[in-house]
Design a protein around this nucleic acid. Structure first.
Lengths: 209, 209
DNA sequence: TTGTTTGAACTGACTGGTCAGTGCAAAAGG
DNA sequence: CCTTTTGCACTGACCAGTCAGTTCAAACAA
């Protein structure tokens, strides 16, 4: 029963169609929300027939769930990579956090719609994909928590910090700042935004220059 | 022609009904989103007939818009009060920021559903109430920006900080940390959460204890 | 007190439209 | 060939908004 092909990266025709559907769905749902977006719209924007959507995904919700999994997977990988690269280069944990902030900004810069949609759904309850969302969220936040914990163990961070809460706050800081950047001052450069957040992270806000 | 009663603060029957509708709508929409929430559900939870919803509000969207205005109004007033009280008591700008963080937490503690719904809608585009949302958002963020600006002018904060972006980041920090608190560790005390965020604000994360 | 009027507030069955999901024959496509 | 896509008609559920009719309480009358 198993497809003997499927090969490596997934360059089948089917994979290409799914990718087109993801891209169409992500922007539409980010703009309008899940319920307000119709399957017909998604199909039209992706340039495929409605039947194709149902050939590739069991339902509208399943399409959305796989989209979430896919997107958060990319983000998690990127954060992990930032942390590891910093560590391998002999950077401190603060450097690692800083690198992760940048990785977060780069991600949001590249996939603003996905980020928007993710934030809109994250704290909802009573939705079909809620459990999926919890799992992937935890994977991403865990990367930040890991760095914080290492920093505490190594004496670089105060052992009074609350690791999960601080991680959440840091993620929130980047998320909201970046969404505001994209929404209200899209002309600013990533470096600029990164510098402002770095300053905040390192407590260089209070304390005169 | 004018009703000679109506008395003081708005204790008419109509006002009571509208309040019930707000309360019903805010939890339902926070859980399910605007489009997935039906007017029938709202009416049922409020304990009124569907027609009553339309007697009191022109449409589902208008109900939602007035709800947003009402809620953000409360938050803005509370932030402003925190800043002013601190100033009048001779506190520094950092103290004012800290007081505003606490005010934010108190608000979210009392109205978690509203907060949830607000975050979910804030960065959407192409929605009827988008402009309303921008206006009220700006009112709230402006309070934070004001304190930051005063701090820069008075030399208490570095003049290199980016005021709008830093304000957004601070708001995001509190918002996301608080939503995580309510969603995942609701048993923790407000003081506890406040302490963790204060620490982060004052850069007491890095730097060993 | 008791009856009557008035208009605001409320009710809920109904309508017209929308949309997720189906079914299928025929056409790419690889 | 075997998989995938197309095109399109169809169904059944669901839902925003309407409207003719009912309730309620205050004001006034007798």
């Amino acid at each position: 029963m198993e497809s003997s092909s499927a090969a490596s990266g997934g360059s089948t025709r089917r994979e290409a169609t799914r990718q087109k559907l993801y891209e169409a769905a992500v922007t539409l749902i980010a703009e309008q929300g899940f319920s307000a977006t119709t399957v017909d719209e998604i199909a039209e924007r992706a340039g495929v027939a409605k039947g194709t959507v149902y050939y590739n995904f069991a339902s509208k919700s399943v399409l959305f769930e796989e989209l979430l999994r896919h997107g958060v997977g990319l983000l998690t990988a990127s954060l992990r990579d930032a942390a590891e690269t910093t560590a391998r280069a002999g950077g401190s944990r603060v450097d690692a956090l800083d690198a992760m902030i940048r990785a977060g900004l780069v991600f949001i810069d590249r996939y603003p719609s996905f980020t928007q949609l993710y934030v809109a759904e994250l704290w909802r309850t009573n939705r079909a994909w809620q459990s999926t969302l919890m799992v992937v969220r935890q994977q991403a936040v865990a990367v930040v928590e890991g760095v914080l914990r290492e920093g505490v163990e190594g004496g670089e961070f105060s052992d009074e910090i609350d690791v999960p809460l601080t991680a959440a706050a840091l993620v929130g800081m980047v998320l909201v700042a970046a969404l505001d950047w994209k929404s209200f001052q899209p002309e600013r450069s990533l470096d600029d935004v990164h510098a402002a957040l770095s300053r905040l992270l390192q407590g260089r806000v209070s304390g005169r220059r």
